[in-house]
Design a protein around this nucleic acid. Structure first.
Lengths: 119, 119
DNA sequence: TTTTTGAGATTACAAGTGTAAACTGAAATC
DNA sequence: GATTTCAGTTTACACTTGTAATCTCAAAAA
């Protein structure tokens, strides 16, 4: 059985902070963010409920929060979804579209080739 | 004011048929699809309501449905959303990630460069 | 003309999302 | 000890999505 945890757009900023900083208490998370505290509490709660974030007991009555879904897992899932929706799952079609829409330059492509060759 | 019409995943198959075929009646749309008819009717209705599809009066009591949002508009919007969510809006970061995850080969990149040079 | 058909309209309903207020109870402060 | 603070919990609520059944009524078929 897969878990297939989805991260809502509104929840993403919290995940990004946890990915960047590691393990934090909720006040530490929130001080890195803008937005209504009540709302942020709800979002963090939902992330814990759906298993995207784990909460470990801490001294006093606070928890230590850690991302349970890695950023790469999130990105992979978003990539698949995007490719499927917009390009029938074809990376090639996507790249072609980026070139046509001039979102990529020849130079950038060359840089990538160089990187691959350097290993 | 922007319109900012979003197309839900479940509605996308209908859009794809309209993008491909142009203007169709609902029976023509549905004969190109699988799935429960009632559900499809609802989805088409919602697309009309949100302005992603226009319905023009036809003979008898049927309409002619046409996509009001172009496929390129849809793709652009999905691309922006994907890039923003996963790579802070940076195409470069995305390409780098694709290379690292081996979703692109050197050969494919070279092909793209060739295409750009040919114009 | 009566009956059937079926496109479109209406209604339903659970999940999930975005947003936020109110409540609780232990810990910190007075 | 009394009071304040605030992390965490509960409740709220409208909107969107996924999925589908039911109702309506003109057109087509019998």
């Amino acid at each position: 059985m897969k878990k297939n945890i989805t991260i809502a757009d509104s929840e993403l900023p919290i995940m990004k902070i946890l990915w960047e900083k590691g393990t934090l208490t909720s006040p530490q998370i929130f001080e890195n963010m803008h937005g209504n505290k009540s709302t942020l509490k709800t979002l963090l709660q939902r992330l814990v409920t759906k298993g995207a974030v784990t909460a470990k007991e801490n001294t006093s009555r606070t928890y230590l929060y850690t991302a349970a879904v890695t950023q790469q897992e999130y990105i992979n899932s978003e990539r698949k979804s995007f490719l499927q929706k917009a390009f029938d799952g074809s990376t090639k079609k996507m790249l072609l579209n980026f070139v046509q829409e001039e979102k990529i330059t020849k130079e950038e492509l060359q840089q990538l080739i160089d990187m691959i060759e350097e290993g």
